[in-house]
């Protein structure tokens, strides 16, 4: 496990899923207030990039743009089909202004 910087807080607009890459791992990043969440960017169901989906604030989830399963940012679990598997969730720490992801 390595802590990899993916940029500064201002790179991640509040509530907007944003793509980032850390040591070759494709990530979907969502900043909610001061907290930054990171999940794998590849939808576990088919071929979609979760960072192109919407953030659902009420569910604390990112909705897949292709078929609509929404993945919880803390557990990674999908709320409804067609996805049945959880997406990988990564630990994030914010050091000053720098966002570090454990990959």
């Amino acid at each position: 496990m390595a802590q990899v910087s993916i940029g500064s807080l201002s790179d991640f607009p509040e509530g907007t899923p944003t793509f980032a890459e850390a040591d070759g791992t494709r990530l979907c990043i969502v900043r909610v207030g001061d907290k930054v969440h990171a999940i794998c960017d590849d939808c576990p169901h088919a071929e979609a990039s979760l960072s192109e989906g919407d953030f659902l604030a009420d569910d604390m989830a990112v909705e897949c743009p292709l078929h609509g399963s929404a993945f919880n940012l803390e557990s990674g679990d999908p709320d409804a089909p067609p996805a049945t598997e959880a997406v990988q969730v990564f630990n994030v720490t914010v050091d000053g202004d720098t966002v570090l992801v454990e990959v």
């Binding site: 088919a46 292709l66 078929h67 409804a80 089909p81 067609p82």
Partner: peptide
């Protein structure tokens, strides 16, 4: 008891 659902990807069009 699930609500039935399906999708169909037809090129750049996806029916849900």
């Amino acid at each position: 008891e699930d609500l039935p659902s399906f999708w169909s990807d037809q090129g750049d069009i996806t029916l849900n």
